[in-house]
Design a protein around this nucleic acid. Structure first.
Lengths: 265, 265
DNA sequence: CAGTGGTCTAGACCACTGG
DNA sequence: CAGTGGTCTAGACCACTGC
């Protein structure tokens, strides 16, 4: 079998006879990986929008001239990475931050079992939303060009009318042209869903660094807490396709009525 | 195809003609799921010990009278759940907490980037290790019989000679007969590896609840910190096979030189 | 009913490991 | 070299969805 796939960044075809002389990097990639990156490219280009159905396995198999099983394996991996969602009998759909089973996919804060106050209907309060010059740390974390600007957004999330999260977002201005406090305040659903629909930015994965801190006087006032209430500091970097960082989010969580829940495997 | 698998808890065979009258529970399970639970049973019974190689896919296929692909899919899931580890050209092995790529599979605390002090060689100090009566909370979390006892263990972990973690373990005494502070102090490798080799208890997954707290006077002394140093409170429940809880671990982490690192997908 | 994803098979060949 | 897991195929049939 040849390289049946007209890949834009063509990996070595399946039947590579690449010399194996101490080269550590594999000179070939399996067919299903090639299919996977074609699908990824399509997702990135927006061939199929979040929530839409992608072509059936059979059709993709014909289009790429491979067997259904090979397409299947590619889709398997993509759906395991939460980029696609399979629905038996219906089709395979582009994952989205809206209308997804969990309301907030990246928010691991849940109410303590004692008081089962549902975390769902969070109240948002946008404190500011302004264009500014990134700090050097922000600039490097977001891999910005020297003169690029960023949005700085501060907001408070309240659960059961209790101010619980103070969040500072930092977004590359180039990708979020025309953002406003209005929009951030009044849009429906998760903020990541707004990013998808309005700005075409889909956050695919994220990583968080968690520490314990005490609030500054300013934070005390904003969250209506005493200065001796310890808070969870959660610094998140979110990534789009190709592992491009597109958001920094520094948050402080109250953990007297909630906790950060994590599953380990 | 019939139920080819002499399953101990036999699910409906593949070609179930079960009436589909509003029953929500699926009356059949795929063949590969049956294979998977057979393998799980074998792992639980100790047919293959941690680190050992299980039979090859071909042999299992013959043994269970299914195709290699079906065995493969079962093994795929088990290795994705970190119960098995595939090694191309060598075989498939029972996962273990020793000699696994990561030294501490469940410990998400890593050194801050500023000071790249490697977290590897942790010093352990066992403060106590005693048999006692569980609290009602512990008893219910570990699903203990009314009169069952537990081990209570307290220890301090130091990284780069800095006391960083104060940990209280709670283990069901029945499963860890003959445990001692000596053993906990002087064994090689992760404590979870000791549990595997000496007591045949393999922790398969865990969940953690994380909060921010301030140290009690006692904790201040134990960790040599001031009372205004906020700590991460990490409450972990670890599970063996069949989702049986086998450990409660309440820990306090210093987060001035380290942080809890989490990946979100 | 047609169309989708989900399971299963049998067989071929490839890549990696170790003796 | 033989033995292992990894990839790929072509075809069959099943289960679920919605018209």
């Amino acid at each position: 079998m040849q390289d049946r796939v007209a890949s834009s960044t063509p990996p070595e075809p399946h039947d590579s006879q690449g010399v194996t002389l101490g080269s550590k990097v594999p000179l070939f990639s399996p067919l299903y990986q090639q299919i996977k990156s074609l699908l990824l490219t399509g997702l990135e280009k927006g061939d199929w929008r979040p929530g839409e159905m992608i072509p059936s396995e059979m059709e993709l198999a014909q289009r790429f001239q491979v067997s259904q099983g090979t397409v299947r394996k590619a889709i398997d991996e993509l759906s395991q990475e939460n980029l696609l969602v399979r629905k038996q009998g219906k089709g395979t759909f582009v994952a989205t931050h809206s209308e997804q089973g969990v309301q907030y996919r990246f928010l691991k804060l849940v109410a303590n079992p004692e008081k089962p106050q549902y975390i769902g209907p969070a109240k948002r309060d946008i404190l500011w939303c302004k264009l500014s010059v990134p700090s050097t740390q922000e600039s490097s974390a977001l891999q910005l060009k020297p003169d690029a600007k960023v949005w700085h957004i501060r907001r408070i999330l309240s659960f059961a009318s209790l101010p619980t999260i103070l969040e500072d977002l930092c977004l590359p201005a180039a990708a979020f042209e025309g953002l406003s406090a209005q929009e951030l305040q009044y849009h429906q659903g998760p903020t990541y869903a707004l990013f998808e629909t309005k700005y075409g930015v889909r956050m695919v994965r994220a990583q968080e660094q968690i520490r314990a801190t005490l609030p500054s006087p300013e934070v005390c006032q904003l969250l209506s807490i005493e200065s001796n209430v310890p808070l969870l500091s959660v610094e998140r970097t979110s990534f789009t396709y190709q592992d491009v960082p597109m958001e920094i989010r520094r948050a402080l969580y109250r953990t007297d009525h909630h906790h950060y829940k994590n599953e380990l495997n």
